[in-house]
Design a protein around this nucleic acid. Structure first.
Lengths: 243, 243
DNA sequence: TCAAATATCGACGATGCGTCAAAAAAAGTC
DNA sequence: GACTTTTTTTGACGCATCGTCGATATTTGA
């Protein structure tokens, strides 16, 4: 018994609208000012109706994060085919990370909320699974590049390191530096005025440390990342909000 | 006009007691279950008295984080004099990080709360400054090691990288991986069963990428870190709670 | 011993989450 | 079109928590 559909569509669209209203509040005012009453008023629906869509406030945050992670995933997919040389493909992923955090700072900030235990623990396993799945797809795109590099003879993994473990390192350094840059009270006064450049340098050093061919010098590395950055910026021009 | 002191001491001690009661709640039950009413009941004082000590709930969290960061700082200080070889001193710092996150998981988890914008923004600049100061001291301990290495000729910083920027990389990779390990839904299923080992490997690779002398092989690296870990574990035996 | 200063108390207002029974709207039936 | 049944919407309600503030108790100092 398929429910015809006008009403059904209406409900579906409302869900998107809730998220659209919630996003800027969470982003620009924070978690507490994002209240269900306020959201209901803005929507011009009763609070109870909101609760038909989301069982609690936390789920809204997760839903927002899922939207964001899907954008990131698309960027990763685009980056992963930006070159035929594995090392460059990884640089392109790095450029995607930069672009995402800098020009989709909103999305990046939202993703971070899901690491908050208060929020994570109150949300449904269904949405948690979606997030896990997204993470898994991101990981397999990037670890695939590593495997290609190994297959092409550009890279040798030593000491039983797996492709995923290797990627974990790049993930950690990128994620870590971005969070630190965003939340550490004044990196500048700690002596790190240009965090993005520092990170590029570290990734460069790490790649060389692994002996990943072909190794250029740091200037080449910078140039390549800028090139991929521009490429992605064009491809995703309509999605880049900030800066 | 110095207030005599019995009462004054009493008040001072109460502050410590509040933190002592608050810590396990925040840790084991989370931010929301840590309520001012509950804390007041536990203290057998009225809520208003609590508010004489801390202007709001967030400040309590910051105060806890400061306690934790001071322990970390002590570990860093101990680590930084655990050897005369700069590269080994940095390994010792790495071991301190490991020990802190693994065996003082409580403290590490608490530190992370202050990165929550909700909490940070509601706290006083006075306590925020204390935190900044702590971070600064940590940074200067570790960047001092880098400078020593340069002075001893063990390391050459290229491409205008400063000691602080270099440290920032290690900080990011350690911090990032620890947060990811703690919050990323099942790293294991992503293909990273042994995150700590992976991080050791990445730090090893990074050090070599920078050409920091003397370079041993990975087995030596592991051995050295284990040695420093044991050393610190003994020194801080009384403070290590978990595991 | 008593007045001024300080500390403590806990009821109170305000806010926000999530519920649920009643009302409204839509879908289905003849 | 008149009806019954199902689904959706509503918003007042119960409950919890934060932070306040005037009243009360305690300490200090003369």
């Amino acid at each position: 018994m398929v429910t015809p559909s006008r009403k059904q569509r209406e409900i579906q669209e409302r869900e998107a609208q809730i998220l659209k209203l919630a996003r800027p509040i969470l982003l620009r005012e924070g978690y507490q000012p994002l209240s269900m009453d306020r959201l209901a008023t803005l929507m011009e629906y009763a609070k109870g109706t909101l609760y038909n869509h989301f069982p609690n406030k936390e789920e809204i945050v997760l839903a927002l994060a899922i939207e964001s992670m899907e954008l990131r995933l698309k960027m990763f997919e685009a980056a992963s085919i930006a070159s035929r040389v594995p090392r460059e493909r990884l640089l392109a992923i790095g450029a995607a990370c930069e672009l995402y955090t800098q020009s989709c700072a909103d999305h990046f900030a939202i993703e971070d909320w899901i690491r908050n235990s208060t929020i994570w623990n109150k949300s449904s396993t269904a949405r948690q699974d979606l997030i896990r799945q997204c993470e898994g797809r991101c990981m397999s795109i990037v670890s695939g590049i590593v495997r290609d590099a190994v297959a092409h003879g550009d890279l040798k993994l030593e000491n039983d390191l797996t492709a995923e473990e290797m990627i974990f390192g790049f993930w950690a350094i990128n994620y870590g530096s971005q969070v630190l840059a965003a939340t550490s009270p004044s990196l500048v006064s700690l002596g790190v005025p240009n965090a993005p450049r520092a990170i590029r340098h570290h990734c460069f050093t790490l790649l060389n440390g692994f002996g990943w061919q072909p190794m250029g010098d740091f200037a080449d590395h910078i140039k390549a990342m800028d090139r991929f950055g521009d490429l992605l910026r064009k491809q995703f021009a309509d999605q880049l909000t900030n800066r």
